[in-house]
Amino acid sequence: MTTQNTVHKTGISHHLAEETLTAYATGSLSEAFEVVVASHLTMCPCCREKAKLLDSVGGYFVEQSDSAIPALTATEMLKKCRLSDVVQLDDRTTEQNDQSDKRPCAHEVTRETALRVPLPLARRLPASVDNLPWKPLARGIEQFELGTGSKKDGAFKLLRIQPGTQLIEHEHGDHELTLVLHGSYSDSLGRYSAGDVADLGPEHSHKPVIDSDEPCIALIASNAPARYKGLVGKLIQPFVGI
């Protein structure tokens, strides 16, 4: 295609897997995964195009599906619609379920120098990324917990890792997404910088090292805890996510 010549370089080289985008389109992901996916999509027009296509594939299957029998006729449903127009002012919840619980964004009016993150994540943070109550985890590693913190729910957290820090080699649970927001890290799969996402299944084992001059900030969601190799790994396993 000729448009290829005018590609706007986003710098993103690690994308979401097609099956993850499909799970997002079908509504099969947990909230934590949705936050990571929507944040990556904000930064990656390439995956956003696929996501949009997958929505229209959903339309295709709706169109092709066998029809179940509705309890109401069109006329009866219209009666309900007219009635709802009358009481609409009392009942805004159904109407606005896409908008109503959009959380206010704590750092919407931050200074220009503040580290910015995509809104799907920003709305869940009590402060801008540099002002979060980071908790130290291990040498060079801090975290901000976004999930329940319970192991059975999988991880959902932000990590801030100092330059030069090397994480212990670990395998992954069932499925893990790591989105780099600032800085970068490298492992056997390549170099991950802002906007890149590592979409890893249980078959992957890696040993990331932070190779940026500034701290690396990454958003992580997994549906099972990562497994660390070796005794030291086992000891710190409960604390680290990527």
Binding site: V7, A38, P118, L119
Partner: peptide, 15 residues
Amino acid sequence: IEVELDDAMLERGLN
């Protein structure tokens, strides 16, 4: 959770 099209972080590009 969805992309917000008025997000200042929204990256535009190909297609």
